[in-house]
Design a protein around this nucleic acid. Sequence first.
DNA 1: TTTTAGCACTCGTGAGGCTTGAGTGCTAAA
DNA 2: TTTAGCACTCAAGCCTCACGAGTGCTAAAA
Lengths: 385, 385
Amino acid sequence: MEDFEVNGTQLNKRAAGKKTRAAGESGNLEKVEKKPSLDSSSLSERQREILKLIVQEFITTATPVSSETVVYKYRLPVSTATVRNEMVDLEREGYITHPHTSAGRVPSDVGYRYYVEHLMERSGGLSLVEKRTIQHQFYQIQLEMNEWLRLAASVTARTAQNAAVVSSLHNIESESRLKHVQLIEIQERLVLMVLVTQQGTIKEQMLSLEEPITQEELSIFSTRLNGQLHNVTWKQIETRLNDWPQDLSRYLASRVAETLRVLDQRHDAQIYRDGLSHILNQPEFSDIVRVRQVLEIIESGVALTTIIPEVIAAEDSGVQIIIGGENRYDDLRLLSVVLARYGIDGQTAGVVGIVGPTRMEYGRTISTVQYISELLTTLVNERRG
Amino acid sequence: MEDFEVNGTQLNKRAAGKKTRAAGESGNLEKVEKKPSLDSSSLSERQREILKLIVQEFITTATPVSSETVVYKYRLPVSTATVRNEMVDLEREGYITHPHTSAGRVPSDVGYRYYVEHLMERSGGLSLVEKRTIQHQFYQIQLEMNEWLRLAASVTARTAQNAAVVSSLHNIESESRLKHVQLIEIQERLVLMVLVTQQGTIKEQMLSLEEPITQEELSIFSTRLNGQLHNVTWKQIETRLNDWPQDLSRYLASRVAETLRVLDQRHDAQIYRDGLSHILNQPEFSDIVRVRQVLEIIESGVALTTIIPEVIAAEDSGVQIIIGGENRYDDLRLLSVVLARYGIDGQTAGVVGIVGPTRMEYGRTISTVQYISELLTTLVNERRG
DNA sequence: TTTTAGCACTCGTGAGGCTTGAGTGCTAAA
DNA sequence: TTTAGCACTCAAGCCTCACGAGTGCTAAAA
């Protein structure tokens, strides 16, 4: 019994493992015999397996993983001593650490990264039942966009059992062009202006007038404005405003311009958050100081508000993962963030994501975030056509 | 020097205090000499003063207050022993407790209640500068209603240094009546319907049609619908729907009815929260278990969602204070809630409030909540006319 | 050369005991 | 009725000790 299988992966003893892998890469036996020199951090098949087990075990139990656990729980046909030797290697390469001499091993950020990219089984996504449940929650009721997003945050948090963040939609094209304007009388001198842009954004704005006005008159103004301002940007309106007749329509046009401008210049996305309690129920946050840090980050921290625009601007439209801040965001040292974009390509985009301890179920989290972002994308498309 | 002053309040020694108070009430000296028998829990002037000092001291320091502190810090011209005697009385009456024999005194919920109702100096509200700052934050930018509320939560939290909750507006009149409907073409077969009710509520709804339609045609339908559906409720539309001509306008009318119905039947207020971290920075929440409880309550707890409708329905329109749950809400045992209503009387109302430890600065909190609710009320009035 | 058994070593954890100091409650005198 | 004085209680901090989990190293076996 030289070979064994764990989770369908063939494992050989150290030498054999190296040979196999190296053969597939270069065939140079000399190098292989000692150490893979080209890429000093490449791992043997067995090391990969052990790393995988350590990560998985640590994710579920939250306690440092001992060599014994690896061997007996997962029935590896090697001794604990062998596993310990491999662990020393893994530690030297930076994939794992241990908190103190007599403790088991804990994955490092690098270890998690390797796990996410090479070892994790992608299969374990959301079940069909779960997807159905989520869909139901979304299509049960009529909602405003902001309520959808709030709901999305809540559902995401519950599904991934972690804190969720959802950012509001954000226009990518910088110049809104007017498609239609409509004026509606609310009260004697109070008028609701509804703007629809070519991009499909809808914006309401309340206006108060000096003089009372009837709906009939307003309708006439609407028609006139629609004729004169079709397909223009706010800047174009402003330049035309100089030689505009000095009547009410001039005021209305200026308000149209202003509202379009606000629409274009608003860059601060709203962020909906939910499920903070999930994070704090994790054992790594039994320390009050950490709890406060995390709360600070999610409630008002700058890290998220820097990351979200980056994700929106990113070329890669797939799921983005930041593990333990990965030296870019010091505040996030203890947390991982999994983010996906939603919206209409090139027009409008938002972000849905999960924030949790680095020790999170990445597979499930990724699936969740991905699925919710797809759902939201459909939703946005339906709403805007 | 038999008399002394603290914060402008005249104090006499025990006997004298009782005489003074009792003389103003009944003049029956017999009763006064022993104990005020009519109301067994009425306090002597000196007891009130000591209670006040204990509450104030505990609010600022968060540590049990010893007799020594009361005497030396506030320069009472009595000995610590005397204060201790009074403390025993106060404790017997339920206004204070002490966590263990060798600890100082801590106000009970009853003690806080007495403090808020009889001892607290109401003067210490927000300064003019603070009010200005708050106003600035509100009037700086154009916002949607939901953004106002979110902002309100954030400002309230910051001002009161505690967690804030703001509920969205909620219609009190149950029957919305249509004032105006407008149809706007978004895309070939996608139509935006904007409803305005007599109550001043505005509601957007997207419709998708089987056949393409032009804006001109839509305008005609708008006019027709406005004529036919003026001032009706959703139920009235539904009854008329039976003998309605089988054309597009029938579909449109039914969608109007449906949208009005959704408007009327929506009773779940959205709640905006902010400033959780303020609570957790308080020393009484250095215990993880409590932190989790609090988080649970504020994030998803049922207590708040029961209290808010109560406040909306309450006859008293003033600030409502619930101290430590006061036996009604067990979850809130550790917290106090200060709430005020905002909105238009008899039409629409929401709630703004603060959630914090029972040991909070009630004076400041009350002022803050009151001021923000006034601001929001003005805002709502401006928006709706 | 790789694997393994065996053993010494490290270090966190929790229990038990001790001291300290804060603050009360009571008593007896003013 | 007030106060000085003192005994008593109890939490908190600190020390020590024993335990056990888990490692790292070595020397022998495969």
